[in-house]
Nucleic acid binder design. Structure first.
Lengths: 290, 290
DNA sequence: CAAATAGTGTCTTTAAGACATTATTAT
DNA sequence: ATAATAATGTCTTAAAGACACTATTTG
C-alpha cells in the first residue's frame, strides 16, 4: 500500500524531494479557430441572404510576423488546462463566456515559432453569430472576422505518392485584406499538414485553420455540431444553409429535413413579413427527449 | 517587406534579442497506446483461435505510481515533434521502426502528474502482432501486453445531466495482473474523460486508454485503419475477427465482405491444412488501384 | 461421412437521392 | 396575379441486415 523505491523512500518522500531538473521545457500555447456563420447583406428584394463561414483573426502588432494575421491564442498557465486557456482567450477576444469548444490537434514541429520552443494545442470554437461583437483585446491591434473559403486543388500526378494527400487553397477575406494559403493534408496518421504557399497568415496558423475546417466538415454530417452555430430559434432553411456553407455543396431539402429531424424540435412560432410563406421556427432538441 | 515594430526593430533584430522570459513552462510528454490483435491459444480441434485486443503497458519501477502499470511514454525533446517522440518511444519499447501512428488528444489537467507540470500528448499506434517481441527498455522494469476489454455501464438515472455522458469499465489483464478502471466520457467537446475508479493504472492513463479505444472504434468502421493491425497476407475471416474484437460485436459475414471489398485485393494463395476448406489470402489494396 | 470454415446468392429493410407537387405569404 | 420560400409526398437508388445455401477441406 505504501511501497518504497530503490532508495527506500515512500512516494510522499520522493515527491517532497523531487527536482524537476533542467531538461529543456517548451512554452505551451493554446490557439483557437473560432467559427461562426453570418448572413451576407441581403441584396435583392425578398430573397434570403447568403450564409458565410467566418473565422476570427487578429493582426499581429509586434514581431514575429508583424502585420500578419494570426489566430487568437496565448500561453497556458500552470493552473489551467489547455481547454481552459482556450476559453479564456475566447472570452478575451469576443466577450463570449461559453461556447462549444473542441480540442483539435497539437502542433509541435520544431521551429514553428521563431522565438523559442512553443508547442501549440489547437482548438476550435463554434459561436452563434447573433449579437456577436468583436471586442479588441488589450494587446491586439486589429481583430476581424474573415470569410473562409476552401477550394480543393487537383491531385498532382506525381509518380507514386506513398501517402494519400490532398491539397486545398484557403482564402480568407474581411473586405480590406485578402489572405490565402495552399495546404497539403496527408490523410494518414490523423492529420499531417504542410504549408505550400502562404499569403498573410502568421506562424503555422494556415495548418490550424485547415485542421479546424476539416474537423468541422467531417463531424457536421453525422453529429449535431452545426446546432452550436445557430441562435436559439431558427428555421430549417437557415440550418440547411449552415450545413451547405460548411460542406460547400447544395443539399436536397427533403432529404436534409429527414436527416436532421431528430436533432430539432418545432416551436409554434413562425417567421413574419418575409415576403413569402412564413417558416416555422425550431430549436435544438434537448438531450434525452427523443 | 521588412516592417519595424514600435521599437524600430526588424524581425531579425527582434529575434536576436528575444528573451523567453521566465513564464513557467511545462514538461511535455508523449504517451502512446500501442494496440495489437493477437490470437488466443487455440484450444479445440480445428477451430479458429479467438482474437484479443491488446495494449502494451510498463510496470513503473520508481515513484510516482511505483508498481502501477503505465503507458509507454517519455519527454519530448526540443528537436523533435510530439509524433517523433512517440515513434522513438515505440521503437525503444517494441523494436518496431515504423507503424501507423495517430495523435489522439492532449491531456493537460493541472496536477495530472504529481511531480511537476507535465502536459501529455497522447498517441495511438497500431501493430501487426506477427513476429512481435517485447523488448524491455533500459529504464523499464516489466513490459507486457494486456488484453483489453471494455464494458459499457448502464446510464445512471441522475436527475438531468447537462451533458450526454457514458460510463464504461476497462479491464486489462496479462494473466498475472488484472487492472481495471471506470471511466466517464462526456461526448461533448470532443473528448472529456473522468476517472471514477482505478485499479492499478498509473497517472491518468485510464483516460488515455479509453480515448484511444474510442478513436479506434470510431474510425475502424469507416476507414481502413484495421488493415494496420494485419500481417501482409490474411484471410477475410481474420480481418473480420479483428473488426469484431475492436467493435466487441459480431458482424454478418456477407455484409462485412461487401463493405471491405474495396480495401483489399485477393492473391492466388490459400491457407492449408486447416481441417476445413482453404481460405483465400488477401492483402491490403495499394492506393490508387481501385 | 462429419465437422468445421469458405464463399456467395438473394430477399428484406433502411436510408439517401431526385424531383414533383401543394401551400402560404407580401407586394 | 406574381415571385418568392415552405413543406411534404413518393418514386428510385444504394447500402446494410438477415439468412439460407453451396463448396471444400481434413480426420
Amino acid at each position: 500500500m505504501n511501497p518504497l523505491d530503490q532508495n527506500g523512500r515512500t512516494e510522499k518522500e520522493f515527491l517532497a524531494q523531487y527536482d524537476p531538473g533542467d531538461y529543456p521545457r517548451p512554452s505551451i500555447a493554446s490557439d483557437i479557430v473560432i467559427f461562426t456563420v453570418t448572413s451576407a447583406a441581403e441584396d435583392n428584394y425578398r430573397k434570403l441572404p447568403e450564409k458565410e463561414l467566418r473565422v476570427l483573426l487578429i493582426k499581429r502588432g509586434g514581431h514575429p510576423f508583424l502585420g500578419k494575421w494570426a489566430l487568437p491564442g496565448g500561453f497556458v498557465r500552470p493552473t489551467e488546462s489547455v481547454g481552459e486557456a482556450a476559453l479564456r482567450e475566447l472570452r478575451e477576444e469576443t466577450g463570449v463566456r461559453s461556447a462549444y469548444l473542441e480540442q483539435l490537434y497539437t502542433f509541435s514541429e520544431p521551429g514553428r515559432d521563431p522565438r523559442t520552443w512553443v508547442v501549440s494545442c489547437a482548438h476550435m470554437a463554434l459561436l452563434d453569430s447573433s449579437g456577436l461583437e468583436v471586442r479588441a483585446g488589450d494587446d491586439a491591434g486589429e481583430v476581424d472576422w474573415f470569410r473562409l473559403c476552401c477550394t480543393p486543388l487537383p491531385e498532382d500526378d506525381a509518380p507514386e505518392r506513398l501517402l494519400a494527400t490532398r491539397r486545398c487553397r484557403l482564402e480568407l477575406s474581411n473586405g480590406a485584406d485578402a489572405l490565402f494559403a495552399v495546404v497539403e493534408e496527408a490523410s494518414v496518421h490523423g492529420a499531417e499538414y504542410k504549408i505550400l504557399d502562404n499569403g498573410g497568415l502568421a506562424f503555422d496558423h494556415a495548418k490550424i485553420i485547415a485542421c479546424g475546417l476539416k474537423r468541422l466538415r467531417d463531424k457536421v454530417e453525422f453529429t449535431d455540431l452545426a446546432l452550436n452555430l445557430m441562435p436559439e430559434k431558427f428555421t430549417l432553411t437557415q440550418l440547411q444553409q449552415v450545413y451547405e456553407v460548411i460542406l460547400q455543396r447544395p443539399l436536397l431539402k427533403a432529404a436534409f429535413r429527414r436527416k436532421i429531424a431528430h436533432l430539432v424540435s418545432g416551436t409554434e412560432e413562425y417567421t413574419e413579413n418575409a415576403g413569402h410563406r412564413p417558416s416555422r421556427l425550431f430549436r435544438r432538441r434537448p438531450r434525452g427527449s427523443g
